[in-house]
């Protein structure tokens, strides 16, 4: 296990390095610079600023300097907000985005699985049709449309929930619904189809022949096997939720990381672009690693660690 973890860690670092390099290359190849805007038209000021942020040096040197500072977890200063470092921005924005993301995942997974199980147990019944109807709607409606609808109806017309911002649990409801519906629908459909397959397996019949209660058969024998494909797509769903937060945060004026991410590109705020991208990538890579670990925990036939020499 230790050997496997170390090996995975190395692969993760290499992945991250490739992402850093690609982002850097893409970033410097976009036309424009952080100081192109109208307020600093003075050429000497601009040259001095570029010197201050090392932007006058060749790209290779800039790249190496960036890698060097990353090694100490220093993401550098923000150019558009001179009194803040990227670390400050991440420290402020990430906890909020993380909270939104985590609650969304929990809501999506739990409701998706419950919906999928109900649909499978009442296969071709009314509950099945309702659940799959919800699922199809959830997959086909983009989250920004859903968000706008929710704000219009629940917040503006009926005044049940706050319209926007982030000031307490009740502020979380609408963005979480908007963000969780899509993944929930995907999980529900997947759980339903694998559950239907698992329920016809011999070991389920065997469990029934043992006289176990239906409750035990579903949760102990069937669900565990039915969850494998759900775990598989968790990686993709995580990435979807991550990028989904950018849009949703913008709509609900949530001060998370999404704001910095989008603004940094508009302002060509190089360190912030790099910082947010690298940070998000690292986060996603770690999550994918955890998904692989969960895999092995659910199904003993999948061993995460291979034999030596393989």
């Amino acid at each position: 296990m230790l050997r496997y973890t170390l090996k995975r860690l190395l692969v993760m670092l290499i992945t991250l390095w490739i992402i850093i390099t690609l982002t850097f290359v893409l970033m410097v190849s976009i036309p424009g610079s952080p100081f192109n805007s109208e307020q600093s038209s003075n050429e000497t000021v601009q040259a001095n600023l570029e010197k201050h942020y090392n932007l006058d040096k060749p790209y290779v040197v800039q790249y190496l300097l960036y890698i060097k500072s990353l090694a100490t977890f220093d993401f550098g200063p923000s150019i558009s907000q001179p009194n803040q470092t990227v670390n400050d921005l991440l420290g402020r924005g990430f906890p909020i985005s993380f909270e939104l993301g985590i609650v969304t995942i929990i809501v999506a997974v739990i409701s998706g699985i419950i919906l999928g199980i109900l649909a499978a147990l009442r296969h071709n019944g009314i509950i099945d049709y309702i659940a799959m109807g919800i699922a199809v709607l959830g997959i086909s409606i983009p989250n920004f449309i859903l968000a706008t609808l929710l704000i219009q109806k629940l917040a503006v017309d009926w005044e049940l929930l706050p319209v926007a911002t982030w000031a307490g649990p009740e502020y979380m409801v609408l963005p979480v619904i908007a963000l969780a519906t899509g993944p929930m629908a995907i999980i529900a459909r997947l759980t339903r189809s694998t559950m239907l397959d698992v329920l016809t397996q011999d070991y389920i019949k065997m469990a029934r022949a043992k006289g176990l209660s239906p409750w035990k058969i579903i949760f102990k024998h069937a669900l565990r096997n039915a969850l494998m494909p759900v775990v598989t797509i968790m990686g993709t769903l995580l990435a979807g939720i991550l990028t989904g937060t950018f849009v949703i945060e913008k709509i609900f004026a949530i001060p998370g990381m999404g704001k910095y991410f989008v603004e940094s590109i508009n302002h060509r705020d190089y360190p912030v672009i790099m910082g947010t991208t690298v940070f998000y990538s690292a986060f996603l890579i770690i999550m994918l690693f955890l998904v692989d670990i969960v895999y092995g925990l659910l199904d003993p036939r999948i061993k995460v660690h291979q034999k030596d020499g393989e």
Partner: peptide, 24 residues
Amino acid sequence: MRAIRGVDISMIFQDPMTALNPTL
């Protein structure tokens, strides 16, 4: 019937490769 299954009447299935739950 559940109280009878597995207690008074038991059943053995054809294919032992699929009659056991792989995750338990």
